[in-house]
Write a protein that binds this DNA or RNA. Structure first.
Lengths: 311, 311
DNA sequence: GCCTGGCCACAACCATCGGTTGTGCCCGTA
DNA sequence: TACGGGCACAACCGATGGTTGTGGCCAGGC
């Protein structure tokens, strides 16, 4: 299937004849004829009945036409998604299934007319670089990590404090607890593979460890959340942290438990970052939406690192 | 933009390297490299960063990826729409904006999972032929026209009586009437361009004329409903009939009036036609849906031609 | 009833494209 | 430092898709 052939088909169907379609496409009538013939050969179906006064759609052609138009629409949007001018709002998130994705879903429900592209860059440093270069329009990140304040041209606002929960298998010592305090976690092994030193998320957990004396291991390669959950479920001595709003593919029959953490509740501080001069209209819409659904940040009984930007 | 290149892009993005993508696509690594390079050239953007250990998506590549997947999905559905096996349910309607379209919208709301293709064939005779050949699965038509009973292998059921309304411009003698009787219409000129002798809709209006002594002119070419509405709006001596449920693009500022017709109310009898042996599962769903929303047909005070199939 | 005009398909020809093989460069690792 | 894995470039070649030229078919007019 060739998109040029599909476009030719649509034009010919609208024109009702190959000749006019050829003129519109600035090719010869014979070229149109060959394109349509090739499309028909590829689909193994007749799309037009050729008459002396033009070409008329067959029933199959009629059925195919709206799909062809849709195909061209989607192709156009695909091209637009990588073209700087009038492209969808491009937002970076820390993980596709983590807390800010909920915010984005809410935004999409409230403003379905806004086109969105979601990407993931490495860390807040890369995000800031991408925002400054115009590669992305906004980023949900924790800011700023120690010793690296945000540049002047990057603005940010706290939008969500996401409580961390303890995730354990059924055999874990704390598996049956309704909730646990941070003090209770001292001495337990908490496993979070994939933490990369130097990133803002690593800094967050470093601070958490230093402040409350926890034991967090980030050894071993990160094989994805499925493998992580499998391991935690099968290893009574291991637990892990997980954002309250994260939507994982929840394995059934593993007996996994999500346990709230209290006294205080560690919360991951998501901020929205954007460039001061970014003119994308949808960025203003997103900011207005987030401002209109005021987040509960720095609530009593919650903990964030000292270096987190306050409102 | 070449769909093969898009497919290659998706496979390479999933694989994380060109080599593996090449194996999966049964081409050489060099071919993959060239396809991706061509796609990047066409989009004027870099989609991968090439490393010694594979190829990684750029931010643009990440943004493009879901659009590429969507593109392939739509292409697949487009191909399926003309392939006999497991294609969408293909339904013929008499006009895209007439009454049965409302039924189809209701069906689509109730069963959004059912894929539909809507086509228009010439008349009930062509529809029966298309149903018997398998070109379409069902048809909304008035059956049967005089002297042409339905063949045994075609089944039908009345699904909707659509009242006809009078459509006039603001200067028409009946423009301010709340309703009109058929007897009142005698002597008025009713213009319905595009009626083709020999079709079932022509037979319907022929019967209407013969029974109530109306004057219906079908002279002149049919330039579409827009032109019809324009003419009716500007010509005080002209009116036309229109189905109560038809959804036209309603021109504003023309002062067009829709006036119910009574004593009796002429109704257009839509039936669903299908082939006795058609195994398409969605056809059963459609029939069940229509049966579950029982139509009011042959209601008191309505008129249909004698030759219309009764329940 | 024949001629004419409009429209599409087939044939021949040719440039471009997209595939292959062969090879070189780069980078992470033993 | 040598090695291996992965990607890009070059040369080559068949397939593809464009063009021009031509013929057939059908509808409408003389």
């Amino acid at each position: 299937m060739d998109l040029d052939a599909v476009r030719t088909f649509v034009v010919a169907a609208d024109a009702g004849q190959f000749q006019e379609a050829a003129a519109e496409l600035a090719v010869t009538q014979q070229a149109v004829s060959k394109r349509i013939a090739a499309l028909e050969r590829g689909l193994d179906v007749r799309l037009f009945t050729r008459t002396a006064r033009g070409a008329q759609l067959t029933i199959d052609g009629q059925a195919f036409l709206p799909h062809a138009r849709e195909l061209l629409r989607v192709a156009e949007r695909a091209v637009a998604s990588v073209h700087a001018a009038r492209r969808p709002l491009r937002v970076d998130v820390i993980a596709s299934r983590s807390g800010q994705s909920g915010l984005m879903r809410g935004f999409h429900r409230a403003h379905p007319e806004v086109d969105l592209d979601v990407v993931m860059v490495f860390d807040v440093e890369a995000a800031v670089g991408a925002i400054r270069s115009g590669a992305i329009d906004a980023s949900f990140r924790a800011v700023a990590k120690p010793g690296a304040p945000l540049p002047d041209d990057i603005e940010s606002v706290r939008v969500l404090d996401e409580p961390l929960q303890l995730l354990t298998g059924p055999g874990h010592a704390l598996a049956s607890a309704r909730s646990v305090t941070l003090a209770q976690l001292v001495g337990h092994r908490i496993w979070m593979p994939g933490i990369v030193p130097g990133t803002e998320w690593a800094a967050y957990y470093d601070d958490l460890v230093a402040r409350f004396g926890l034991t967090i291991e980030s050894t071993g390669p990160n094989f994805g959340s499925d493998a992580l959950l499998d391991t935690v479920a099968d290893t009574p001595a291991l637990a892990t942290f997980m954002g309250e709003h994260s939507r994982l593919v929840w394995p059934t029959g593993h007996g996994l438990r999500r346990i709230p953490v209290t006294d205080p509740t560690p919360v991951y501080p998501h901020s929205l970052l954007w460039h001061r001069d970014n003119p994308h209209p949808a960025l203003a819409t997103l900011r207005a939406h987030l401002a209109a659904t005021p987040p509960a940040v720095d609530a009593p009984g919650t903990w964030t690192p000292d270096w987190v930007h306050r409102r």
